[in-house]
Nucleic acid binder design. Sequence first.
DNA 1: TATTTTAGCGAGAACGTTACCGAAATAACT
DNA 2: AGTTATTTCGGTAACGTTCTCGCTAAAATA
Lengths: 340, 340
Amino acid sequence: MPEHVTIKDIARILNISVSTVSRALRDAYDVNPETREKVLQLAKELDYKPNFNASGLAGGGTRNIGIILPFITNYYFSMVITGIQEIAYAKGYNIVLYVTNDSPERELDVVKNLNTQNLDGVLVAVCSDSAANGYFERIIAEGTPVVFFDRVLGGVDASKVVQDDYNGAFEAVEHLIQQGFTRIAHVAGPLDLDFTRQRLAGYLDALERYDIPVRKEWIVHSGFSQAHGEDDLARLFDQMERPDAVFAVNDRKAIGVMQALKARRVAIGRDFGVIGFTNDPMSTIITPTLSTVAEPAYEVGKMSCELLLQHIVRKSNFQPREIVLPGMLIPRESTLRTLS
Amino acid sequence: MPEHVTIKDIARILNISVSTVSRALRDAYDVNPETREKVLQLAKELDYKPNFNASGLAGGGTRNIGIILPFITNYYFSMVITGIQEIAYAKGYNIVLYVTNDSPERELDVVKNLNTQNLDGVLVAVCSDSAANGYFERIIAEGTPVVFFDRVLGGVDASKVVQDDYNGAFEAVEHLIQQGFTRIAHVAGPLDLDFTRQRLAGYLDALERYDIPVRKEWIVHSGFSQAHGEDDLARLFDQMERPDAVFAVNDRKAIGVMQALKARRVAIGRDFGVIGFTNDPMSTIITPTLSTVAEPAYEVGKMSCELLLQHIVRKSNFQPREIVLPGMLIPRESTLRTLS
DNA sequence: TATTTTAGCGAGAACGTTACCGAAATAACT
DNA sequence: AGTTATTTCGGTAACGTTCTCGCTAAAATA
């Protein structure tokens, strides 16, 4: 019953060879526009669907692209995937999803077992403490197109798409300063990730720019979760001298910070400024609403995918590119001094 | 350089035929345990990776399973995927992701172009107003294993995994009643989705069970978003007689309801009860915290995937199953009368 | 012992496509 | 006119598996 129409059927009916049909169906190389038209016409009529297993086997593409990332259960990554998916769908590519749970072992296993014969290319956001560096390099050296996004890997010869973490952080801290906060702490993430370092750098440079001395004890870092944010604030409040504002590496941690502040009955906004990074919808739900730097997650996804597809079609003569997309400061109540 | 070791290499080295190697690598049918052991040993040594394109072409499986769903940017679906992914990874299957954006046209297009030759099976949550009924039936009739989850399709002969929407809704409304709310409205979702109807039924039966007359004007329905929740509450408050509590079909709408209530300076909890459905992390972030019915999203994902894999390996002699997983009532501040 | 069964294996043909190369046929030059 | 390019096509061999047979040798049966 699964009577699938193949390239052979088309060839037989049109009384031409399969080679010609194959060529006509892809790019009109070595084929008469007329016969090409006939092939396309008949293919549509018969509802022909190419078999990508065969195509992949024979050396053509599989039309599958892989995504390797730590999580999908947060706003940022799910938006990135949505962006990727939009482009992939438009261009007729399928997405194969690999979630590493932010575990280096899992990531390593995924990359080792990445069947690059099944994949035309891979989009990747590495996990914290990634140990797969060498394996990614090998895949890239073998010629598989790879694009890193958000959590990029240093030193490898591949395209990269990130948001402007440095300037976003700078603007966030600048905003705190302009709101009159001067004792600004930074609740950071794992420092092995590039964007964490970028945001830290933006924080440091903003302080320097406004002649505010850096206090190392006000830079605390741990994981990315809300609980980590709560812990980090506790560590900040355990100190003799407390800060009066926090720039958090992301919204989830900022929300943890806010919850911890609420538990301590600190008036967020008026007495204590909090700003995050991401623009997670949660930041509009929490009271007071959380100021943040909006990340162009959807655009990061789209851009990454577009780059990857370019790499795939141009294959060897494609120069890796590094793209930085701008974020946007979104002031809300958590940094508003005038809040009653 | 991409020197990939194949089944032929193993055969040549061991001086046996490819057929034997092939059999040894899969299930030990017609192969001596000794030679099987040798093959497995050498395969591991050479780091042999099967080519699933070839396998798929030749009639074996592709080790790819598809997921078709409306969104990935909400808590529920992202958790379901995480669950699916966990099982798939453990069993060595890849996940191919199709996001329909809850658009019937898009879904139709995806299903029509679903290359079932590339997929061993498909997991699907249909979109609102799905028009792909017939196409799913065709795929199923062709023998492709399909499991529906959450948003199931009625009448088709396939496995289904859902949470206990009816009882969850019943318990939610019962909880409102027990908290002393009597004028309970229902902010529903699109009624063409089965689980929306189930939750409505639970709502109606709970009212009946406690001898509370149903007021049709207090049952409003629209989409699933927060904005829809705000609109629905406005419609409720436009009426002469207002309810004193709302059971919302999901947390996003419940949050919309809460925001609209806050704008109207209604004391949520004390004067007006709100309960949602899902247990989205947002429900713990909002003030007051939102009571809800926790959905076993992760378990739905795991169970769906397990069922699908069973179907795949047992192929024709697999009886479709329907599984209902229990939810759990989680009372929080938004239904607490005693709240100051 | 003669016969049948069974376990284990191999040969070869698929599966649907693309890559490679050569053959016509036509067009464009001397 | 003869020669050379160019365009358009077809034949055939892959790609790495699985599948369907059929074969051999050993084991079980008569």
